[in-house]
Computed example of a mutant assay.
Amino acid sequence: MTTAHPVRGRALGPGQAGTGNARVSNSDRRRRRGTSGHGNIGWLFLTPSLIGVLIFIVVPLLWSLVLSVMNWQLGGAATFVGFDNYARLFQDEGFRTAALNTTVYVAAFVPAVVILSLAMAAWIAAQKRQKPIFRILYFLPFATPIVANMIVWKLMLTPGGLFSGLAGSGAPNFLGTGSWAMTSLIVVSVWQSLGYNMLILGAAIDAVPESQLEAAEIDGAGALTRFRAIVLPMISPSLFFVVIITTIHAFQVFAQAYVLTGGGPGEATMTVVMFIFQKAFTELDFGYASAAGWVLFFVIIIFTAIQGLVQRRNVNYDS
């Protein structure tokens, strides 16, 4: 009686029936050992980065959570206070002002950046020969340091600066009046952030198949109709990413306000992150500052989750 070889398909004698299985098993074992070895090498290369993440992100994050339920000032003894720091926050007029200012900033900044960067990306995508030049020019503000940009804008917006000189004696005090200071902060921040979003959305628009746009044009669809019915659905994943990242960065605004206005005049441009910075590094109340940081963290998580639910209906992942 003969049996077929399970791999090569040739007939084997009765004494050879198990040899093929043994060969296959040995081959599988060698392959698995090789795959396991590659996995170990990968973890070896990842180890320095994982150590950095553990030391500089995970440990400080957990330590700040512990501090948020403690009353601890630098150089003093730490005492457990439970949720007293969180209760203090919602009774603190300064924190409420900072939260309101941050909300106003986010509500104005995010739509302005997303809409303007989308319009700019669509316009640059239509420029065939000058497209790389325009992208480089509009990306430069994002590539340059925020502090340097804010110092230049501060010099231009202060009384006696460029804008005051152009507007004459009737020029408003852009950084010395509450409403103008917040408006100036939003405008300058939009200018700073446009390039990054424009680059992402521009790459997504370039990936839209020309054949679909040409077919729609042949069917009589105008430019706006093609953009609304074809381009927007196809770039919706990139658009959703831009909205999420822009919202997170807006809630964390710090350097722009700190350099441009210092949170003033009064507390007109005081943001939540500036409030945390002031409590931690000026008043050295690290427990209270940690509680404020965790409140901001949960607010960002909630907004991100809401946007994640919205994207299920409005984001198209089909190619």
Rank of each mutant, 00 (worst) to 15 (best):
V104Q: 09
S49Y: 10
F90G: 00
Y138E: 00
R88N: 10
F134L: 14
A125I: 01
V106N: 10
W43V: 11
A119C: 15
A126K: 13
Y86I: 03
V53A: 15
I57F: 15
F95H: 00
F56A: 05
V59Y: 14
T79F: 07
W123A: 15
V81T: 13
I124P: 00
V69F: 07
V106H: 08
A98N: 05
N101E: 07
G42A: 12
F109G: 04
F134R: 02
F80G: 08
V59A: 12
W43P: 05
V53S: 11
L61I: 00
I55A: 14
L44E: 04
V69I: 11
Q73I: 06
K128Q: 14
L62I: 04
A77D: 13
I133T: 14
P60S: 12
A125V: 07
F83E: 09
F56H: 05
A99M: 09
P60R: 12
S64K: 04
L100S: 13
R96S: 11
F80W: 14
F95P: 00
L50D: 08
F83K: 04
A108D: 04
V58G: 10
L62D: 02
W123G: 13
G42Y: 04
P132W: 02
Q73M: 10
W123I: 11
A126R: 15
L62R: 01
T47Y: 08
A87F: 10
W43M: 13
F83C: 09
Q127G: 00
E93F: 04
F90D: 02
A98F: 03
I133Y: 09
V69Y: 03
I51M: 13
D92Y: 02
V59D: 07
I136K: 06
A98H: 03
L67M: 08
V113T: 05
F83P: 06
P60K: 12
G82M: 09
T97G: 11
F109H: 14
V106K: 07
W72K: 09
D84E: 15
F109A: 12
Q127V: 00
F139V: 04
G52Y: 08
A125F: 05
A125P: 02
F139A: 08
W63Q: 15
L50V: 13
G42H: 02
V53Y: 15
A108N: 02
I115V: 15
R129P: 00
F139L: 14
I115Y: 03
W123F: 12
S117V: 01
G94D: 08
R96D: 07
N71V: 04
Q127P: 00
L116I: 15
T103F: 05
T103L: 12
L74E: 15
A126W: 03
F90N: 01
R129H: 05
Q127N: 01
W63P: 03
I133R: 06
G75Q: 08
G42E: 05
Q130L: 15
L61S: 08
I115R: 03
L65C: 09
V110K: 06
T103S: 09
V58Y: 11
E93Y: 06
M120T: 15
A107Y: 01
S49M: 14
D84T: 09
